[in-house]
Structures are given as C-alpha cells and as structure tokens.
Amino acid sequence: MPVNALYTDLSDYYDLMCADIDYEAQSHCVHRLQQIFGNGGRRHLDLACGTGPHVRHFLDAGYRSSGLDINQPMLDKAALRCPEAQFSLQDMCGFSAGEPFDLITCFLYSVHYSGSIERLKACIASVHATLAVGGLFCFNVVDKSRIDNRLFASHSVAHEGSQFSFQSCWHYHGQGEAQSLRLSIERTCAGETQVWQDEHPMVAVTFAELQALLQPYFDVQVLEHDYERIAPWDQTSGNALFACVKI
C-alpha cells in the first residue's frame, strides 16, 4: 500500500495546512446534495478522510459516518476527533465494506490521488459496489485542460511558538493522464526556518473524460464549485463538484 511520506512525517501539522478550509460549509453542502439528489439515507463513508474533520461534521448532523485512508497516523488522529466513527486503513481504489452506504464523499480533490486512469476506474467501481441503490457519490475535481501552472494557493498560521507558511499548486505538462500537486511548507521558530517540499503524482482528467468513466454506473450532475449555493457548472471554470447517483 503506498503511503504519502510527507503527510506521515507532518501529520501533526496537517490540520494547520488545511486551516483555511471551511469543513462545515463543505459538509453541509453535500448533506443538501444528498437530500436533493440522493436517497436521503444517513450511512456515510468518507474516502481519503485524513484526520476526520468532515466525518466530525457528518456525525454532528446525524449521520452514521465512517472513513478510510491509506495513512495510519491520520487515522489515529481521526479516531481521537471522532471516537464514535469507524475508520479503516484502506486504499480508495480497492476497498470493501460490510454494509452498503447511502453517501460516499471524497473531499479536497483527493479523488486525484488515485494516480492513474486505471486506478480511478477501480475507485469508481469500488464506490459503485459499496453504494446503496440511489446513493450519492460526491467529490470535487479539477479539469486538466483548465489548469494554470502559474496559480497557487497559500496561507500562514501561528502555532505553539512557530510560524507556518503553506503553499500548493497544480502542475500539468499539457498532455497525458499525469499531473501533480506541488506542496511547500515552511516552519519558522526562534529565527530558524525549516522547509519541506514534495510533489504528489495525481491523475489528470477533463470533466468530459470523467463523465464518460462515471456514466455507466451513475446519473451524473456537474455543479459549480461553490459550497454556498447549488448551481450547474458554468462550462468555463476549472473546478467542479460532481454529484453522482447510483443507477
């Protein structure tokens, strides 16, 4: 099973790296999508759940929520955050569950971690096999044809006497099924700065290619990447929410 070395080494800082993410808004939006498009059920599984912040919000909303990840240090922290949830060390591209789920989520573009089209197909097949009829698979994704390699996201946060700076960006070479997520983390404490840099291999797809992979299994809605409102994708932006109902 592949393990992300950066996240293993820096799992204590993962929540700081994601400190600017509104987990509550994301979780509430997907809850609304489940009510609108899904079967309304409350059995939930979060793929690539990390330290469990989304799981926490679904539990608080009345779901029976579970999570899986390939990183055990992340899961250990998720279990502390959500002691009533079930967590398992599994690969999202080939997982199994003892019962069907009504809602399966994959936040923070983590579906790209499948790494290749073949593994993405395996992920989709595993999700379909695990969902109940009418269940919803919801995730966010970036279109490779709309990636601007010059753009990046960054934020800084103070924690326990240290100042952290985080930066991330997509990089796509312009052809093929491989793109990458480039990360940079700086920690400054007592005048000394440490820098970690990593590049994660990710699968690259267009929205049209992804729809073609999903449509044999799901009724697919492509929506604007906006957690405050639900609207069809505008056909121009490079990020989208996919809401996929099991046929």
Rank of each mutant, 00 (worst) to 15 (best):
L120V: 00
R81Y: 13
T188E: 14
G161I: 06
T206I: 02
H28T: 04
C106F: 05
I117V: 15
V203F: 05
A79P: 06
D219H: 11
H225K: 14
N239T: 13
S116V: 01
M92N: 05
L103G: 12
A190G: 10
Q167C: 10
L151M: 14
A231V: 12
S66L: 02
D219Q: 15
Y14P: 03
S156N: 00
Q179S: 08
Y13F: 12
R56N: 10
Q26Y: 07
C82Y: 05
M202P: 01
V222P: 04
D102S: 14
H155C: 02
Q235V: 14
F95P: 10
E192R: 13
V30Q: 00
G40L: 00
C189D: 13
H159E: 13
Q35Y: 09
N140R: 11
S116N: 03
A231M: 15
G50P: 00
G115T: 01
S65H: 13
P232R: 10
Q194T: 15
G52Q: 03
G98M: 09
A48I: 06
H54G: 03
T51Q: 06
R187W: 13
S145N: 08
F137E: 00
Y227M: 03
K246W: 11
A125Q: 12
I36C: 08
F58V: 05
H155V: 01
G115V: 00
A85C: 13
K144G: 14
Q35W: 09
G191Q: 09
Q175K: 08
L241I: 13
F37V: 02
A204T: 10
G40R: 00
Y227D: 05
I36A: 10
L214R: 01
Y172M: 02
H171Q: 15
D143K: 06
S237L: 08
V205N: 07
A243C: 13
T130V: 10
V133Y: 06
V205E: 07
L210H: 05
D91S: 06
V222R: 14
L103I: 14
L136F: 13
D12F: 09
G38V: 07
C93I: 00
L47D: 02
L108W: 10
L16N: 06
S65L: 10
F152M: 12
L223A: 11
L47C: 09
T130I: 13
L181I: 11
T236C: 12
D198A: 15
A190M: 08
P201S: 07
F37Y: 11
L241S: 05
Y7T: 02
V245S: 07
C106E: 01
S156R: 02
T193L: 05
P2G: 09
L214T: 02
S237H: 13
Q163R: 04
Y113W: 02
R81I: 13
A208D: 04
Q167L: 06
E186R: 12
H28C: 03
I247M: 14
S96T: 15
M202K: 01
A208Q: 06
L103E: 10
C82N: 15
K77D: 15
L241A: 05
G176I: 00
L108K: 06
Q90W: 08
C123M: 12
H159L: 13
L45R: 10
